[in-house]
Structure formats: C-alpha cells, structure tokens
Simulated scan of single mutants.
Amino acid sequence: MPARSAEMLSVALVVPLQGPTGLYGPSCLACAELAAEQLNERDGIAGRQVELVVVDAGREPRVVADEVGRLVDEGRVQAVAGWHISAVRQAITRRVGGRVVYAFAAMHEGGDATPGVYMIGERPINQLLPAAHWMREELAVGRWAIVGNDYVFPRVTGATARLALADTTSEVVSETYVPLGTSDFGAVIESLSRQPVDGVMMLLMGQDAVHFNRQFARAGLSALLPRLSPAVEENTLLAGGAGAHEGLYAAAAYFDALGTAESTELARAYYARWGRWAPTLNAVGESCYEALYFLARVGEVCGSVEVAAVAAMPSGHFYSSPRGLMRLDGNLLDQDVYVAAADGMEFRIEQQIARAH
C-alpha cells in the first residue's frame, strides 16, 4: 500500500471497538472525529490535514500491535493516538516505539521513556492517591480492598497505592486481580463482605466494572463500602443502570458535568455536531480529542511531529485544553483532577483534588 501524500498526516486512532472496553468505543470515535474536523478547519497538525485510520484496540495486544506496525511499515500512518489499555500500549511500543510519535491518552501507571511516546492521561500521583486521601477525610475510608483486572495498569497502580498509603492513615488491606472479561464476581464480592475494609478501589475496565457494580449492589454492599475508581465514566453508569451506583466515586480530569469554561466549549461543539443522542461525552472519549489536539500542539511548537523533532518539546510547557490548564512534565502531563460521586446515571462533581502545576 503506498504512503499518503505529504499534504496529509495520517494518525492511527487506536480505540476499543469490541471486548470488555468496547463500550468506550463510540465516544472515542465521536470525540476524535470532532477533533480532526476542527483541526482541519484550521491548520491541521504541523500544517497538514488530518486523516484518522481506526484500529480496533479491543483485540489481543499482539494483534493490535501487528496492525499498527504494518501501517507504520507501509508509511500509511505517521503518528499513533488513542485510548486503550496499557497492555496494548506496551505491545505497540515494542513494535513501533521510537519510529512515530505516540500520544497515549488513557490514565496510566507511570512513565515510558520510549522516544516520541507521550503519556497524556492521569496517573496515580494526581488521580487515585489524592482521591483516596479525600475519601479518608470525607468518608472515613482508611482500609482499602483493591479489585482490578489482571494486567499492567491495575497491577502497578495497586502496588503504587499500597506503597504510597503505607505511611499514611490509610492502607491497602487486600488485592484481588481477575482476567479482563470477567463477568462473575460472586466469589470476589463474598470475600469482600468478610474483610475488615472500609472501601473498595476498583481498577476494573469497561464491562467488567459494569458487572461488578451490579453484583456489588445486589449483594447489599453499596451502602456499606464506598467504591473509588479511576476508570468508571458515564458509559459505565449508563450500562450499569441507576440502581448499581450508590456509594460509587470516580477520579478523573474530565466529566460531562464538569461545567468549566473549557469543558463547556467542548460540550457545546460536541452536541452541536452529533446531536442530543450522541455517545455520551466522558473522560475516555475526551481523552481521544485531547490526544489529537496534543499532537497539534507538538506540531505547532516543534514544526513537525517526527520523533527527532518532538524531542525539542520543552518540559514545563503549558497549554489550555477542555480539561483546563495542562503542563508537560517530561513526556507526562500534569492536569487538574476532580473527584465525583455517581448520582444515578450521572456524576456530581465533589471537589478538585489535584492541579496542573
């Protein structure tokens, strides 16, 4: 397959369209397409019109990485962006790392020193840990049980939480990890009911979180054990139903109910483009919008999105986005983060818990 014209910048948009995280897919696609349309009405990315080449991240990581690798090998794409789990990110990085710029939009467990890789989502130090401290102060949650999917992000995040809370008034009492795609949490929930814990850190993705929340509520634990998640968003609430979310809290840099000047501007454009029945606007979808605008920012500052050029992107660089003020810290981003309470099938913002600095 021939390479694209030099006038076109093709971006592999790697988002889940099937599997446990597939429920995020429609929001990811809608947000990314809106970003591409807006950028193409201006200067595109580094002066080139943007084309999105969608890659389904809901498959096995190796399969996803092989497809992205072929696109890069053939010159079909010149950048990679999108929301997907860290296991997919690691597979892609092994395959094409250092060859194209890569804007990884999801919340993540920490750094990746691969040249050209930018980790633009939230991380435990400004997301999960401040939220845990907030829940200690507001809800007296001190003893945590972690329930997560069994791959790199939940495992490393769980270990980070355990170590970070060890010298505080909070602690991690237990950790349980289940395969991605788990639908029966009966044994996990029965164990939780017997543990001396005050709350549950949910490191479950997509449909797994939906199943867990429903079964947790049916077991009568919602009023007893608050839950905290860095990954639950508006699609998860809609899929779970209004009765499954009592005592559920989320920490993220973006919510549909955020109501800031920056988030309101995106919401207005999003619903004007897609209508009132659009896929729900949420942190996961918005992160794909964020990733494309980040590539545009890099192109504006560096004059190109080639890996050699983006090395000149200065650490400490500030810019504004729908999430508010963003600050580049090496290849990571600091950003404002909020904790929100589930209220039926919507979120209610409780407090800002971290700031870009």
Results as ranks from 00 to 15, higher is better:
14 V>S: 04
16 P>T: 03
21 T>Q: 03
28 C>W: 04
35 A>Q: 06
56 D>I: 10
60 E>T: 11
62 R>H: 15
65 A>W: 11
75 G>F: 07
77 V>T: 03
83 W>I: 13
89 R>Y: 01
90 Q>G: 14
94 R>M: 06
100 V>G: 02
103 A>W: 03
106 A>W: 03
107 M>T: 15
112 D>R: 11
117 V>Y: 10
119 M>W: 07
127 Q>T: 12
128 L>I: 14
137 E>H: 07
144 W>K: 02
144 W>L: 02
151 Y>S: 08
162 R>P: 13
172 V>Q: 05
173 V>T: 12
173 V>L: 10
175 E>L: 05
179 P>D: 05
179 P>M: 02
187 A>S: 15
188 V>S: 12
189 I>H: 11
190 E>P: 10
193 S>M: 05
205 M>K: 05
207 Q>L: 12
209 A>C: 10
214 R>F: 09
215 Q>H: 07
221 L>R: 09
222 S>V: 07
224 L>Q: 14
231 A>S: 11
240 G>S: 15
248 L>V: 13
251 A>C: 14
251 A>I: 09
253 A>C: 08
258 L>S: 00
259 G>A: 04
261 A>P: 12
275 G>Y: 01
282 N>I: 06
284 V>S: 02
288 C>M: 03
292 L>S: 13
299 G>H: 02
306 E>R: 08
306 E>F: 05
310 V>Q: 04
333 L>M: 07
339 V>A: 01
343 D>W: 04
349 I>Y: 01
352 Q>R: 15
354 A>H: 11
354 A>L: 09
